[in-house]
């Protein structure tokens, strides 16, 4: 399995796309920190990168990679190797390359310019979101029949998590505004990894705002050690469950 992952990794590095992605992240992060006079404003822009660009790239890149190496996967399936192992080594190869791109492109500048609690929260969220969306992309590509549909599905999923979900939440919160919604907002935030990551970063970035109104609830819940464990746990669920579903589907698939 290690050997297979290594080949996947070689393959990805050779294609140079991941290098371009790393450079893009690095240039954006460094220029943010150079441009803004205080690092908190730069962090705000990086927050958008982590919450929007990162899931998008993870989804699209993984889907394209899956279909490009479809023949390789077919070849490997003819060897005495379980399909679970094949998919897992694919996952390991892709996620390692995406993670190293993120850590070099965003992690390094953040460590240099803003190595505080907000910075660490941002990196934690970035790492989690990369893993989550790689895993979701595998599910999408296993389900879809061809490349075009696969990428379409991946984009749709991104659209849902980044935009539509928050719109739906807004709708729910306004429709039921006469009821106590504290517990519901906690639940709603757990149902979208992007929202969960955002709230996790905001607890470090905007504590004074979050102490107002019902925000105090977030502070009490997510700010405590249980909250941090909860965030990490839910993120882990978001990583494992889609991938597990993908593996299940992949095992029965007629390649």
């Amino acid at each position: 399995m290690m050997k297979l992952s290594k080949y996947v990794l070689y393959d990805i590095v050779r294609s140079k796309i991941i290098l371009a992605y790393t450079l893009f992240l690095l240039i954006v992060s460094v220029s943010m920190f150079q441009m803004e006079e205080n690092s908190s404003k730069a962090m705000l822009s990086l927050l958008n990168i982590v919450l929007i660009v990162l899931p998008l790239v993870s989804l699209v890149f993984t889907t394209i990679h899956y279909y490009n190496s479809y023949e390789f996967i077919e070849l490997m399936s003819s060897q005495p190797m379980s399909r679970t192992r094949i998919l897992m080594s694919e996952y390991a190869g892709v996620s390692i390359s995406l993670l190293s791109a993120f850590l070099a492109g965003v992690g390094l500048p953040v460590m240099l310019f803003a190595a505080d609690a907000t910075g660490y929260a941002l990196l934690f969220t970035g790492i989690c979101l990369t893993l989550v969306f790689t895993s979701i992309a595998f599910l999408a590509s296993v389900i879809a029949r061809d490349k075009a549909r696969g990428i379409g599905l991946a984009l749709l999923l991104w659209f849902y998590f980044a935009l539509i979900y928050d719109g739906l939440v807004l709708l729910i919160l306004f429709s039921f505004s006469d009821y106590p919604l504290e517990k519901l907002t906690l639940l709603l935030s757990a149902l979208n990894p992007v929202d969960l990551g955002r709230i996790f970063i905001m607890l470090k970035m905007d504590v004074s705002t979050l102490m107002g109104y019902t925000g105090a609830l977030y502070k009490d819940f997510f700010g405590s050690n249980t909250g941090i464990l909860f965030t990490a746990g839910i993120m882990l669920v978001w990583i494992i469950v889609p991938f597990w579903l993908a593996v299940r589907k992949f095992k029965r698939k007629d390649l």
Binding site: L163, L170, F174, S177, Y213, T214
Partner: peptide, 19 residues
């Protein structure tokens, strides 16, 4: 929006709200 419905503080800094 937050003034109208405090629960929407949950969507603070989200992409949808920025749009």
């Amino acid at each position: 929006i937050v003034e109208e419905n405090p629960y929407t503080l949950m969507l603070f800094r989200s992409f949808t709200m920025q749009l």
